[in-house]
């Protein structure tokens, strides 16, 4: 996945062919707005998060104003409008996870990562965020890293998960 253009040295927000595909879809529908969430998610998938330039690119691709994109982007909590690490950990803090030790897991994660909620590890690998219920209440306490959900968290399990992800990344 190319995230920096070799010749311009600029961040690649989305590959040109993907942008073209969105442009074509937008031209094909009477309501291009329906593509907003898809496009923001595509930029985020590719670039890790949605910077201002991503909002502008999306606006321009769909023929809307940046503000019109920003109104949507800032509503959803899973669209990141600030830089995040390469993997975002969403720890559930809703009721089922709370009853099953979610607060202790939070403590544990903070310790292990050395960061608080809303922060990114100095090596840029992990960002820790709280989230509401992940729909994994039967497997509480649960967290989601990227788009993968992990349940029945214990100290050992968390260690393994974090270690494996670090290995994958290297």
């Amino acid at each position: 996945m190319e995230t920096v253009n070799q010749t311009t040295g600029k961040d690649v927000l989305l590959p040109d062919d993907t942008i073209e595909a969105f442009r074509a879809k937008a031209a094909d529908t009477p309501h291009p707005r329906e593509l907003i969430v898809d496009l923001l998610r595509a930029i985020q998938d590719h670039h890790g998060w949605v910077p201002d330039a991503g909002i502008e690119l999306a606006a321009q691709t769909l023929g809307l104003s940046p503000l019109q994109l920003e109104e949507i982007a800032t509503f959803y909590d899973k669209i990141y409008r600030q830089p995040v690490g390469r993997k975002v950990i969403h720890l559930c803090d809703s009721i089922c996870c709370w009853t099953t030790g979610g607060e202790q897991v939070a403590e544990l994660l903070r310790d292990k990562l050395g960061i608080g909620f809303g922060e990114t590890t100095p090596d840029g690998v992990f960002t820790l965020l709280p989230t509401c219920c992940l729909g994994a209440c039967g497997d509480a306490p649960a967290m989601m890293i990227g788009l993968t959900t992990y349940g029945r968290l214990t100290a050992e399990k968390i260690d393994t998960i974090l270690r494996e992800i670090r290995q994958q990344i290297d």
Binding site: D52, S65, P66, E70, T74, F75
Partner: peptide, 19 residues
């Protein structure tokens, strides 16, 4: 107008411009 609107949600609503 399309350069002014509402951003954010819940009790964190900002009424302004993109930039």
């Amino acid at each position: 107008g399309d350069d002014f609107g509402v951003m954010g949600s819940r009790n964190r609503l900002f009424f302004g411009r993109f930039q």
